[in-house]
Design a protein around this nucleic acid. Structure first.
Length: 510
RNA sequence: GGCCCCUUCGUCUAUCGGCUAGGACGCCAGGUUUUCAUCCUGGAAAGAGGGGUUCGAUUCCCCUAGGGGCUACCA
């Protein structure tokens, strides 16, 4: 049977980076097995529905290159892929459960249950369960007479349908990542399968849909582990073949304890969402920044996320999505939660920047400096390389080497103090004259030769002349090889800048 | 509290009973460089604790401790 995995987020807000990783692992597992990856929107909770969230999920996946084979807006023969559009479909299954004694009606209202739980807690039961031990004391079709049940339903009383957990025994299942896991039935809850609004809960809907959509591997976050025994029992109650289960470790806060949350991102200053998320009612209010807008390359984010919890078993760290597909295996997914390391994410990004193709490099430079389009391709590439080895993000290119395309507005004070001294400036002018007079192709090596000859002749060091040269040309004392910069600038521009610096800055006499 | 999961350098991790415990990020030092960065070389840095099993445990089992998740008519 062909592998089919699904990513089943609920549109209650922006997709969390942890959710993105779950989607990634689902995708990788499916593709590694030449199978299909399905996107299903779990919007059975009307109260928590957030407009725009589904679009956000779609955009995020699309940015990352995780393309569903089936899903809303992708089509497929197992649709619809939004649970809200499948609501009518669940009723027969609930009835089947009811008829076969695997489920029952319960009439307790939420308020009643809350007060009941409170009173139970006062009596020392830390987390009161609605199950075989308490059912008899609550209002349900197991405790009430058949007649009363009938009357309540006829009358239009609100009710839910609960799963009838066996009194005793155990539920065991094999987790592809963790191995065998066992739960005792008496520890389990009679979970609500169908809410009083007639919609199924996640538990029922995901089992029915996974079965109907022929999902073979359920890959989801570890937070679902405690409710898996219920799902297992549901499969058994329906007599359906069970999918394989794999529960992924959680992504934890970089410091302290607990799983990574939006607040951690705000607090520590890094994004926790793939792309920007704006207030659904006031679209001009940015609520949470994204990796994309922060300047991350999607493949870098994917690469980083993949290594958070999974490893190839080798020392390789850089993986394209295709590489990941080839190498991925659930067997090599870790059991323990992984703390989020933003610095490492930045490192991945810088690696991707350096590995840009020639064309990407040229495009990036032209995008940042439109004026650069007059330059030839080799020059554009050189400019990119000059900048990229001292930054982590593409958008940092602009500030690092803006002086290649426009005269520096000011020369930094620290530099002036250090390099704008009488003797040094004299050498600078002298040397510039030498360059001007020379018959040179103005290439970096040629320029370097001229300067080298000059300093040898004058018995001075590079340090006597290069800093002031750099300062007058770029306005700063740091940056790439000054000969590359000069070569790129060209003779007239170099002369112009030196002249300008001479005119605007008083010689430092100290 | 109960249930379930987890536990190797600060962080992400390798190790399928034989280890001088490897790699990466970060950090530190040195080298290259006019400078910053890159790059290269080197360094500090780990098996939670206690019991077993075994000729031999980081690796298998148990206990303790610690961490995490769940404990809704949310997913």
């Amino acid at each position: 049977m062909a592998t089919r995995t699904r990513f089943a987020p609920s549109p209650t807000g922006p997709l969390h980076i942890g959710g993105l990783r779950t989607a990634l692992f689902c995708f990788l597992h499916a593709k590694n097995n030449k199978g299909d990856f399905i996107l299903r929107i779990e919007d059975t909770d009307q109260k928590r529905f957030v407009p725009g969230a589904e679009e956000y999920i779609l955009e995020s996946l699309s940015w990352c290159g995780i393309t569903p084979d089936e899903g809303p807006s992708f089509g497929g023969s197992f649709g619809p892929y939004r649970q809200s559009e499948r609501s009518a479909l669940y009723t027969p299954y609930v009835e089947q459960l009811l008829m076969n004694g695997y489920a029952y009606y319960a009439f307790d209202t939420s308020d009643e249950l809350t007060t009941w739980r409170n009173s139970m807690q006062k009596q020392g039961s830390a987390s009161p369960k609605y199950n075989a031990s308490t059912r008899a004391y609550l209002k349900n079709s197991l405790s009430l007479s058949a007649q009363e049940v009938e009357e309540r339903i006829q009358r239009g009383d609100e009710y839910v349908v609960r799963f009838k957990t066996p009194v005793a025994g155990e539920v065991r299942f094999y987790d592809e990542i963790r191995g065998w896991i066992v739960f005792q039935c008496h520890e389990l809850d009679d979970k609500v399968l169908m809410k009083s609004d007639g919609l199924p809960t996640y538990h029922l809907a995901n089992v029915v849909d996974d079965h109907l959509m022929e999902i073979t591997d359920v890959i989801r976050g570890e937070e679902w582990l405690p409710s898996t025994p219920l799902h297992v029992q549901l499969y058994e109650a329906f007599g359906w073949i069970m999918p394989k289960f794999a529960h992924l470790p959680l992504i934890l806060k970089p410091d302290g304890k607990g799983k990574l949350s939006k607040r951690d991102g705000d607090r520590l200053g890094f994004p926790v969402f793939p792309i920007d998320w704006y207030n659904p009612v006031n679209s001009s209010e940015l609520i949470a920044g994204g990796y994309k807008e922060r300047g991350f390359e999607a493949p870098a984010v994917i690469n980083f996320l993949a290594l958070l919890g999974w490893n190839p078993g080798s020392n390789q760290e850089i993986f394209s999505l295709e590489n990941l597909v080839e190498n991925f295996s659930l067997k090599r997914v870790n059991k323990s939660g992984a703390k989020f390391d933003y610095q490492k994410a930045c490192w991945f990004n810088s690696e991707y920047l350096k590995n840009y193709t020639r064309q990407e490099k040229r495009n990036a430079i032209i995008e940042i400096f439109p004026i650069a389009k007059n330059r030839n391709e080799n020059e554009l590439e050189l400019v990119f390389n000059l900048a990229s080895e001292r930054i982590h993000f593409k958008h940092e290119i602009k500030d690092t080497i803006a002086y290649l395309f426009e005269k520096p507005k000011v020369l930094e004070g620290k530099g002036v103090n250090k390099a704008w001294m009488k003797e040094k400036v004299a050498h600078l002018e002298d040397c510039m004259q030498r360059i001007q007079d020379a018959d040179t192709d103005f290439s970096a090596p040629a320029l370097e030769n001229i300067v080298k000859e000059y300093i040898e002749e004058k018995s001075i060091s590079f340090g006597q002349i290069l800093p002031s040269l750099r300062l007058s040309l770029t306005g700063t004392l740091k940056g790439p090889s000054i000969f590359d910069i000069m070569s790129f600038l060209g003779l007239p521009e170099c002369l112009d800048r030196v002249k300008l610096a001479k005119k605007n800055y008083k010689i430092n006499t100290i």
